[in-house]
Design a protein around this nucleic acid. Structure first.
Lengths: 411, 411
DNA sequence: ATCTTTAGTTGGGACGGTAAACGAACTAAT
DNA sequence: ATTAGTTCGTTTACCGTCCCAACTAAAGAT
């Protein structure tokens, strides 16, 4: 069994080696600290092979020896851990009102977590890209001052993004057909690390799978909860992108042909019931709707819900029901083990999850024999950016390793 | 790049060999007849390696030499093809009113295609299993008389089937929690080939991907069109099963909370609009609904549609619209390149596809930049059974090969 | 002091892919 | 008929990786 993807490509020894290096690395990520003998026993690799692999990983500065076990019969074991210090993975997020940067080391420790306000001009991506590039440069500079090599950088965008990193349609940002990957690569002066662009929901679900409460679950969905609703979907351990990379358009599931109008021009979309704008409109009918005020509005709704305000509770119950209706479609079609609620859903989860779960159970075929759980995300609003960094680490875990010494990185 | 799945398992030489054998086999499946030199040039494998692999495959009787090329500059090449004759893959289907058996040889040629009427007693799976086992024995016996070795047998069931081959819930058959795999294995006296049980839609989409018009598409959906509607979903080349194996419950997508009652006890399910029962009820209001009469009813609807009967055309347009509505959910969540319509949908496709496509385009976000096509399946009602056989061949293509000579098969 | 237990290394063997050289078998040109 | 050129497939030597078994190393147990 070998790590990399199937395909018409033949295999050779390099693939075997890469696979086994990745096996050791992944084992060490989840079981550190442990000894060479542990790894051999658990993975089934030969002791000699493990020694060779570990030597290789130490040469690449991915693994470090941390000291001997004591007080045991037999020779003490040399314990190994992932070596966080020499590398960093960077994730950025651009959204309508903020930019976020997150960096993780190899062991998943958070190295930085920045957030800055931002207001883009719709239809003018150039300015946004310049701001994003400035943030990226600052983050990379800080990491390099700590003598870390940046392994990769991924940008999360609230948009349909195709496989080549082209932003097809970002309603919130007012972008259409923007080749963000190319522009940002140019703005950063052709950096030596790989730079990727991805849908925010897809990255958030990667973060959820690695860093969240549901870490390790192989069939998982993350729902962004903002003005627009998107689903990041992991099936059988892999991100589901669809033929053109446009899977997960959760917000425009049509719930009721006679429902309220949606920003997309249709009626009765889920987003028209459970998108952030709709929620504020229902829970706080007197509030003015301006994007920069979303945070305070959500806080206000949260406060009123805790205080037992009848109108707010009714509105949240209704939103929860609609959400459950939408999730029932996910459950019927995709049957995930768990749906995690992100964005504003997270804070309001205590009032949303019970009605959503009730609705889901009444609507899904498999409810009795293997239902889908709905839970609040344990990650904060930096989930998508953290997912961007996670995606870089996933590539490492899949066997694309940095070279042993200062040799030029394979791209 | 290696064929088999990722996972915690380490790789060794056997995996390299299996991967490369599978590479040659798959190349030969799609490019036969061709020479060793062709294979080496196309796959990137070394000529010497290809020779070794081909020798191995010939020893296993999977490949055969068929003669030399002529009239070309240079030494004539020995052409190779998949050797169909020594092996067979069997697929069975059980449904409410019939049993089907299909066998394919290694090259995908149909060796047999049987269909027999059958009426099971709901809640009494034992009798159905006996009939299925009898059919299987007859098919296997015929293949063995032709000196073929059976590589595997897969049973298609119109039901929720979990990963272990247990039928959790088969509404049409009236089954609940039936361990079909175990029962059938026992009824066949522990056969030497692997026996698997799978959802009919999942197998049909496998058949569609290998044998249908859309062969090779890596993001594909097949919709069963019968009394119940299920979707077989292939994403990124792999079957989507979900956490418990219950993905693809297309028929119970909730379209309209105020819709007509569905057999599942809820209201407004897609099945209540576009399931076969509903279609017959709408198009032929005077017809009596009895399962054994479905075929004639569909033929009658087809005849009337061709004749331009207004009521039937209106009913089919409405069904097409509902179908498009359901497919829009698939498209929004999964973004397949293509949805193929099976079952009764296939015959009536000329009247269903235009309204369905119109509805889909008006409802899906990605319609403009990456829309999903809706097409009629090119396969007949034996699609699921053919998919069962296909699944066995998929295992071969993935590198699980029969041993060189009469040695005991690895299970 | 010796035995037992466990950790990790070493050397040999097997296996499989790679590269280059080679013979075989054909066509094309002389 | 002879020679040159082309292509096919095998042969040979080589190299990298994994496995196995034997070994050394370092601790506690007796």
């Amino acid at each position: 069994m070998i790590t990399r993807d199937s395909g018409p490509q033949p295999a050779d020894f390099a693939d075997v080696r890469a696979t086994n290096l990745a096996v050791v690395l992944r084992h060490l990520r989840s079981h550190a600290p442990c000894s060479r003998a542990d790894i051999a026993a658990t993975t089934g690799l030969n002791k000699a092979t493990v020694s060779s692999l570990v030597t290789d990983l130490i040469d690449r500065r991915l693994v470090r020896e941390v000291g001997m076990t004591e007080n045991r019969i037999g020779r003490p074991a040399m314990m190994l851990v992932l070596d966080g210090s020499p590398y960093a993975a960077v994730g950025l997020e651009i959204n309508t009102d903020y930019l976020t940067a997150v960096a993780l080391d190899l062991a998943g420790e958070r190295l930085l977590s920045w957030r800055r306000a931002f207001t883009g001009t719709p239809g003018q991506p150039g300015q946004a890209i310049a701001s994003l590039a400035a943030l990226a440069r600052r983050a990379v500079a800080k990491l390099e001052r700590e003598n870390r090599q940046v392994l990769g950088l991924t940008v999360a965008v609230p948009a349909l993004v195709d496989a080549d990193g082209i932003v097809e349609l970002a309603a919130g940002l007012g972008w259409h057909q923007v080749d963000l990957r190319k522009s940002l690569t140019a703005a950063l002066g052709d950096p030596p690390y790989p730079l990727m662009v991805e849908n925010d929901a897809n990255l958030a679900v990667l973060a959820e799978q690695r860093l969240g409460d549901e870490a390790g679950t192989s069939d998982l969905v993350y729902l962004t909860g903002g003005s627009s609703l998107r689903a990041g979907i992991i099936c059988d351990g892999r991100l589901l992108r669809g033929a053109r990379g446009f899977a997960g358009e959760f917000g425009h599931l049509p719930l009721d042909p006679a429902g309220p109008p949606c920003g997309c021009g249709r009626r009765g979309c889920l987003e028209a019931y459970a998108g952030l704008d709709a929620v504020i409109r229902q829970a706080l009918p007197d509030a003015a709707l301006s994007p920069s005020e979303f945070g305070p509005h959500v806080d206000e709704i949260h406060r009123l819900a805790k205080a037992g305000d009848a109108q707010v509770l009714a509105a949240l119950t209704e939103v929860g029901r609609r959400l459950g209706h939408g999730i029932s479609m996910l459950a019927n079609l995709i049957n995930p083990a768990c749906v995690t609620l992100g964005g504003y859903f997270t804070v309001l989860a205590p009032w949303l999850i019970p009605p959503a779960t009730a609705e889901l159970e009444s609507r899904s075929v498999a409810a009795q024999c293997g239902g889908t759980r709905i839970v609040a995300s344990a990650l904060d609003s930096s989930a998508a950016a953290a997912g961007g960094a996670t995606r870089v680490l996933d590539a490492i875990d899949a066997g694309v390793l940095p070279p042993p010494q200062g040799a030029p990185a394979a791209r």
